[in-house]
Structures are given as C-alpha cells and as structure tokens.
Design a binder for these strands. Structure first.
Length: 760
DNA sequence: GAGCACTGC
C-alpha cells in the first residue's frame, strides 16, 4: 500500500523506536529473579497475564493494574478499598510434561510449516524446551482438532497461556518471536513466513504464512477486501480488553464465518477459521455471540460445512475443560477450550480502616515496609496524578532524615516519580538500578499500567483509584439534536437499518447510535435518502481519522478552499500528543518563551499549530535543537511528521491531492506563507467537520454553545485564553471542574451560514 | 490558570 511507503530514513527511525520498546520488554524478561507478579488472592483465580514471554520470565506489574481495579470494584465494603499492599511470592509452577503429546506435536507441526532449519541446534532445543513448558503445550492437539471440526474456537486462558496483544509493540515483538521459533527470517525476505503490519511499519512479505497486525489494520484491510480472501484463519487475541475495533472485527468475522453477511459470498466457499482468545470470564458471552450468528439464515449457501472426516482426539469431542453443551444451532461449529494457567500466590493486605488521605497512608506504609522488609525489594506506589506524586515525594524526602538515621542501620531510600508530563530522561531514571544499599520508591500514575515494566519491584501500594476519561453521554444532547434524531429515525430502510442490526458483542444504546448516525448525516457521510454510506463517507472511512477530521480534510481538498496541505498539518497535530511542552516556571528561559510566542497566531490554536509544524518542517539542520529552543516536544513532532506523511500519501491515493501539489509541498513549508484568506478557509474547513463545536459570546461575557447553549470557557492552554471574541470553534471539550473548550480558534458567525448554504 | 493515563488507523 503506497500510503505506508515512507522513506527509508523515516522507516528506519520508526523501527528503531519500536525496537527500543521491544528491548525494554526483553530487559524485563531477563530480570527474572527480580521481576515479580502482583496480584491479590482474588485475582489469582482469574487470568491476568496472557503472554508467551510469561512462561520464560514472570513479568510486569504493569498490566495487572486493570485487574486490580476490577478487584477493587468488586470489594464489598469500601473501607477495604483504600489501601492494598501486595507482596509477591512466586510459587513453583506445576509443569505438566507429556512426552507422547510432545512427540505428536513435533510431527504435526512439521506439516506445512518449515521446521527450524537455520538455527543453531542448541538454540533450537532451548526454544523447544520453552515451548514445552508453556501451559498451552499439552492442549495443542486439542486446539488443532477443535479447529478442524469447528468454524469458531473460543480459547480461554489463564495466566501465561497464550499469545498476542492489541498493541503495535506487541504485534511486532510477537511476530519476531514466532519467526525465530520457526527458524525463518521476519518480514519481506522471500524465506520469511512471518510478517507484521502496524501503522507506519509494513513488514509483510509475499511468502508470509502468518501475519501479526493490530485490529485497526485488519479493519482497514477489510475496507478493501471485506471477505478477507487472503486469509484462511483469523486469530483475535486479548478480546477481554474490548475496544471498539475488536467489537467491530468480531461482528464482521461472525458475518463471514456464518455466511450471514454479503461479504461472505466473495469467499466463494473457501473456509475461514476464527479463533477468539480471551480471559475466561468472556467465554460464554462470546459463545452466545457466535451461536446467535449461526442461528441466523445465511445469505450465502456456499459456506462449507464442517468436515466430518476430520480427525479427532481419541474419537472424543475436541472441546475441553470448560466446554459447555453446544446448542443445537451451533453444534460442531463452535468449540471452547480452556487452558490452565499457572498460579502464583500473592499476599494482600488491606488497611484496617478507610483512609481519607491516601498519600498519608502510603507514606506510613512505605516506611513500614522499609523498616521491616529485607533488601532487595523496591516499592511501587500507584497514585492518581502528577501533583499528588510531587507532594508525596516531598513528604517522603522530608521524613527520610528522621527515620533513616545513622543509628537506625536502615538502607537508604530514593524516590523516583513517574508520570507522563515528565521528560523521557526523567522517566528512564526508574530503570537504572539503585545504588548499593538503597531501596527505590517509585511513585507512578497509571502510565505504568500498559507500557512500562519496572524490574526489581517487590511491593505495590495501590489506592485502587484511577482517573479515567469517561464519555459523558448526556451532555451534547439538546433540542435541535432531538429533532434531527427523529429525522434519522424516519430513514430506517436499508443502510441505517443495517447499522442498527450490526452484531456487536456489546450494543451501544439506541440513543448513542442515533446520535452517531446524526453526526454522520451532518458530515454528509450518509445519504439522507436511504441512510447508506455516501461516496464522501467512503472517502472519510479510508482516512485513519475520526469522521470529523476526515470531513475537514475532504473540505480542504475542495479547489475553492485549496488548503489541504495546511489542514493536514493541523489534523496531524490533533492526532498526536501535545506538541507544546509544558512551560514550568524555572525551566523555561525568556528566550525560549519568546521563541514559542513567535509561533502563536492571533486567529487561534489551529493556526498556531500550523505555524509550529511549518517552522519545524522547514528546519533542515537540527530539528531537535529547534524543538528545544521553542519549547516544543521533539518526540511529538516526529509523530506529527509521521502522521502528516501518511495522510498526504492517503490523500494522494484518494485523488484529493496531485503529485505536483505534493512535490511543491515541502517548498511551501515556511513561516508567514499563510494569508488571511487561506487562514479563514482553513478554519471554515474545520467548521465543516465540527459544525456543532461552536460557541458564541453572550452578553454576560461568557461563551455558550450554539447547540444546547451550554456554558464553555476557553481552556487556559489556548492562545485565545481570556479573549472575548464573536464566536469560537473548538476541537474538543474537556470536562473538569468547568466545561472547557480546548484547541480554540476565532470564527465569524456568518461563516456558518456560508457553509450550510453550500451544497453537500 | 489548568493539570490522569494509555492504545489504535
């Protein structure tokens, strides 16, 4: 796909970054003696870790956060929720080795897949040894037979039993691992049997037999090939993590595998196997979900029936352990398999009384652990935010001289904060080993939940609380919307009907669906007559963006607007982390502030972002230095440039952008080239994509949204903070103590009429 | 004058 044909240089950079992440993982694995598992007892009954690597090294407290939260939700009395101290105690796992199964496996694996041939024998035997020790190993024959006999396999696993994750790094590292196991190169080489495809990194070769990709990538592929004709089997892992992408994917896969969707016809009878891997708790729900599909009438009668001559294990049913009696409709079509995990006993201590001030309780616990517990053993404390962390750090450091006196004979204590706003270097500090006779105390937000592994931690103090961004369903509803919703309800036939009936594991409320449909109607992504997706909607869908940003891009490509390239730059910023580094009082000198201020544009944040991107792009000598001088995040900017390149390529593919325009694009990367009228056009395009994100000044000096008349204030991070303007357009709402509009620009009310007068 | 984090195309 040309969209991903980035320059070699950029690819290389990106890959380096990926590899760095992977290295971190590996590092954690090799830290076997110090790495530990944090689970409280209740959790030990539920699967937590699903990863090949776990078998080798028990890893990461990071992922367990979610589980700990699950647990705290279930706690009966809130008074036990406040403080949990989990000390890890690794117990010896029960290894089940079955030589017969093993021989059997080795023979069967040999069919169709190349055996490792270019690996040293020692490495080969080590890999095999590791494989055999995996809890899933004894189940291999069952799993294979279940797949031969059924269309769908639901694989539930406990700790350390199965494979992938829905994240880019996971897709890449797993592909690498599986390629190694198979003894073949990874990616595009002709010998490579394993490849991967994640955003900005397409490493798939013609001869690949197995491809690891993110869910979003597969959905993107399905836009081109809804029947997934290139594949005979799709494995969806980590389903319990439940993203919208997973739900959509399962819905499409159900349609294909049951023959109930139109797309299934295009497989022309070629069988598709679906393996869904999830935590145990979801098994029944998943089974019901697929059973329901098999119970429905097929559109395509050509779906292959299950091969009755397929071999079975000793003639018994292949499903094992937790398999339920299959319902009549799904007999021989769905099987479930449960892979036993390994248990680790973990000690959980609760605070005997509820505590008001978690920081205070944590402070006491930290010193108690420090006094009582032997070295080594670092402490990890989960807290809600950066400010809380700073305060607690101060409190600990104040207390150190009182507790750790010369006479006490206690080891030293160092405090290391970890939250997103810290620089990369500060974040890395937690990985460096503590000096001799020193215990590390890491104070972290849930940044550590998914992406960071801290070796050496043996104690976790967790409040059981976390701030989680929540979509507020009710807000944004207003009289105008209600009116339009009845309009959308009136167009029930065909398209809309299909959407409403699309099989989803968890169905959104009808209200939410209708609101979403209304938004798509407003963006001209649906035909108002029949509710089907419009040509414009198709174009929007192919862009890796929200519909609103996609619509903005399409509007900008209109020759009358003629501002596609600058709009892409701004949209790229909205799809990256904040490019402007937080200005702390001391660490910013006047020079840097001034340099940053020069990037500001009086029209608002959209054009300010644009000027920053263009200035960065036109810097040809040392961009890192430029970023530092302008208080701009180099890391975020690199991501912006990646997204920008991808969007440009996709716009070219969609014929929104010509080669010639693209060729001259880089020459235009210069400050002050945006004229007043171009600036206005840019904002009008955003207005097209965000028609309801408009607020106007009311007589009391505040802003109110034009839809719903909700009070909003300009966020303090905006260049327009404190300004009184006729009307503002904003990229998003932020709900905190007040309702803020973030990323704000000044607009004129008459632009609204102009836009709505224009034909769709 | 605000301020949780992470993931994905």
């Amino acid at each position: 796909m040309s969209a991903t044909k980035d320059s070699a240089a950029s690819q290389g950079q990106k890959r380096k970054r990926e590899e760095k992440d992977v290295t971190n993982n590996k590092k954690a694995q090799s830290d076997k003696p110090s790495a530990s598992i944090y689970k409280n007892l209740q959790l030990a009954e539920k699967p937590v870790y699903k990863n090949l690597q776990i078998a080798e090294a028990l890893k990461t407290q990071s992922k367990s956060k979610k589980q700990r939260l699950d647990k705290s939700n279930k706690a009966e009395k809130p008074k036990f929720k406040n403080l949990q101290i989990a000390e890890s105690q690794k117990s010896v796992s029960k290894e089940t080795q079955d030589d017969k199964v093993h021989r059997d496996e080795s023979q069967k694996l040999g069919t169709g897949i190349n055996r490792p041939h270019n690996l040293p024998a020692a490495r080969q035997s080590k890999l095999l040894q590791v494989r055999q020790s995996l809890p899933i190993w004894p189940q291999a024959a069952n799993i294979r037979n279940a797949l031969l006999e059924n269309h769908v396999l639901i694989l539930a696993g406990e700790t350390g039993s199965a494979v992938t994750q829905p994240r880019r790094v996971a897709a890449v590292s797993l592909a690498r691992r599986v390629a190694e196991e198979m003894g073949t190169p990874l990616g595009k080489s002709p010998q490579a049997l394993v490849g991967y495809n994640v955003r900005f990194d397409d490493n798939v070769g013609k001869n690949n037999r197995i491809k690891f990709l993110t869910e979003g990538m597969l959905l993107q592929e399905m836009l081109r090939d809804p029947a997934l004709t290139e594949y005979s089997c799709v494995v969806v892992d980590e389903v319990h993590e439940r993203s919208v992408n997973v739900d959509l994917l399962l819905g499409f896969l159900r349609g294909l595998v049951t023959g109930t969707s139109e797309a299934a016809k295009k497989r022309k009878g070629r069988p598709l196997k679906v393996v869904v891997m999830s935590a145990t708790a979801d098994t029944e729900k998943l089974k019901d979900f697929f059973s329901e599909g098999f119970g429905q009438p097929r559109i395509e009668d050509n779906i292959p029936t299950v091969d009755d001559s397929a071999p079975t294990v000793d003639g018994k049913e292949a499903s094992v352990e937790v398999s339920q009696k299959p319902s009549v409709s799904s007999s021989n079509k769905i099987s479930t398999c449960f892979v036993e995990g390994r248990m680790y006993s973990v000690q959980t201590e609760y605070l005997s009384e509820p505590t008001r001030d978690f920081s205070e309780a944590a402070l006491l616990q930290i010193f108690q652990i420090h006094r009582k517990e032997p070295m080594p053993g670092d402490i990890l404390v989960f807290l809600t935010g950066g400010d809380v962390i700073t305060n607690l750090q101060q409190a600990i450091e104040d207390m150190i001289p009182n507790v750790i006196t010369k006479d006490s004979g206690l080891p030293k204590l160092i405090v290391l904060p970890l939250y997103a706003a810290l620089s990369q270097a500060q974040q890395q500090a937690i990985f460096s080993p503590a000096p001799p006779n020193t215990r590390k105390v890491i104070l972290a937000t849930n940044i550590a939940e998914t992406s960071i592994t801290v070796p050496g931690v043996r104690f976790v103090i967790d409040s059981g609380k976390a701030k989680i961004k929540q979509f507020r369903n009710r807000l944004g509803l207003d009289s105008l919307l209600v009116k339009d919703i009845s309009k959308s309800s009136a167009i029930q036939p065909r398209g809309v009907h299909d959407v409403m009936d699309f099989p989803l594991l968890t169905r959104p409320s009808r209200e939410a669906m209708e609101r979403a449909l209304l938004q798509l109607l407003q963006l001209d992504a649906l035909n108002p007559e029949d509710g089907n997706i419009s040509d414009l909607g198709r174009k929007i869908a192919r862009l890796p963006l929200t519909p609103a940003h996609g619509r903005t891009i399409i509007a900008a490509a209109d020759p009358e607007m003629g501002c596609l390239l600058p709009v892409i730059d701004i949209v790229a910023c909205f799809n990256s982390e904040n490019i402007f580094v937080e200005v702390k009082d001391q660490d910013a000198n006047d020079e840097a502030r001034e340099a940053r201020n020069k990037l500001s544009r009086r029209q608002g944040d959209h054009l300010t972002l644009l000027s920053a991107v263009q200035a960065y792009a036109s810097e040809r000598t040392d961009r890192k230095q430029w970023a530092k001088q302008h208080l701009v995040s180099h890391r975020s900017m690199q991501n912006v440039m990646d997204v920008r390149k991808q969007l440009r390529a996709q716009c070219q593919q969609a014929k929104l952008l010509t080669k010639e325009q693209l060729a001259t694009a880089d020459d235009d990367d210069d400050l002050n080239t945006i004229s007043e009228s171009t600036g206005n056009n840019i904002l009008k395009c955003f207005l097209r994509g965000f028609p309801t994100n408009v607020a106007r000044l009311v007589p009391d000096g505040s802003y109110r949204t034009i839809h719903g008349h909700m009070a909003v204030a300009i966020h303090p991070s905006s260049v327009l903070y404190g300004r009184k303007l006729e009307a503002i357009l904003y990229n998003e709402f932020v709900y905190t103590n007040r309702t803020y509009a973030r990323s704000v620009s000044a607009i004129q009310m008459n632009w609204l009429e102009e836009i709505y007068a224009a034909p769709a």
